[in-house]
């Protein structure tokens, strides 16, 4: 059909298409240029000798190790919470569940939807709260009788395991992990919820019809389908934990060789006027983040939008 159109119309359309794509690209390119410019400026500012002298510092090496370990533990804990919570939120909001409730009574469905929105909003609170507020809230929580009790029991547990250096939660390594987990888990839950929402629940319903238990339908049918989302949630939680600063500053402190992680190394160096050291520590953070993001992209390559389609 288009071949029959007059040449002038085709030319005008091509010009408009070109303008459209150029305009769309310009906005994206601005932001991309900002990110690249920041990275280039960082790498230009700090040289290799700054980096090597930073890495020679035992306290910095400790903060790197603590960052790697605490981020991994926080990300695993986040997944532990995010997979079941994301699955529940996705399936409770599914069309089949809404229809089933609607058959019982419209009032019941409305109440259920309100409850779901409320829980959903609560789970988003750590994302929207200022990081310092998360830290203060955690600190206050561990000043309550229940918090103090848990703090004390945790100290005793670590002592019984031979880790006498960890005397509780607040201002100790567990506080670093808890502060990272509190924020990272919210992102992981959101990712897992979106993952399960995108997975067609029909294979699970078929499995239930054929005699699978709810656990089997979840573990044999839903979970294998969600592995890309699980990798993405883990990465997001890990990267988020790596960049966490505010809650750690308040709840775990910045004690060197004790609760210092990479983000606090940047802060401490900056605070003591060592800008080159701060930038070098930032570059380690940037490098780790880039490595994790590239690994995630490689691991989750080849995703198909037709995965949930039944044959």
């Amino acid at each position: 059909m288009s071949k029959n159109k007059p040449k002038s119309i085709r030319q005008a359309r091509t010009q408009w298409d070109g303008l459209f794509w150029t305009t769309m690209s310009v906005f994206g390119v601005f932001y991309l240029a900002l990110i690249i410019a920041m990275l280039v400026a960082d790498f230009q500012f700090a040289n290799w000798s700054d980096m090597s002298s930073l890495l020679a510092d035992e306290r910095v090496r400790f903060s790197i190790w603590l960052s790697l370990i605490s981020c991994t533990i926080a990300a695993i804990l986040s997944l532990w919470v995010a997979i079941p919570t994301g699955f529940l939120l996705a399936r409770l909001g599914s069309e089949s569940m809404t229809q089933r409730l609607g058959q019982q009574s419209p009032g019941c469905r409305r109440l259920f939807n309100w409850a779901r929105y409320f829980i959903d909003t609560l789970l988003d609170i750590p994302i929207v709260l200022p990081p310092l507020v998360v830290g203060i809230s955690l600190l206050v929580l561990f000043q309550t009788p229940a918090g103090r009790w848990l703090d004390q029991r945790t100290g005793e547990l670590f002592a019984s395991l031979g880790y006498t250096g960890i005397r509780g939660i607040t201002y100790e390594i567990p506080a670093v992990i808890l502060a990272q987990f509190t924020v990272a888990a919210a992102f992981a839950v959101r990712t897992m919820r979106n993952t399960f929402e995108q997975i067609d629940d029909r294979p699970e319903r078929v499995a239930l019809t054929l005699g699978a238990s709810h656990y089997q339908a979840f573990s044999m049918v839903a979970l294998p389908q969600a592995w890309r989302g699980i990798v993405a949630a883990f990465t997001l939680a890990w990267a988020r934990s790596l960049g966490e600063f505010g809650p750690i500053l308040i709840f775990a402190g910045t004690a060197r060789m004790k609760t210092e992680v990479l983000s606090t190394t940047v802060y401490l160096n900056f605070q003591f006027g060592n800008l080159r050291g701060a930038v070098s520590a930032s570059l380690i953070l940037v490098t780790l983040a880039i490595v994790v993001l590239i690994l995630t992209r490689l691991l989750t390559l080849g995703g198909s939008s037709k995965k949930g389609v039944i044959v």
Partner: peptide, 8 residues
């Protein structure tokens, strides 16, 4: 419609 699960 068979209803086989494609990724198993």
């Amino acid at each position: 419609t068979l209803e086989l699960v494609p990724y198993l």
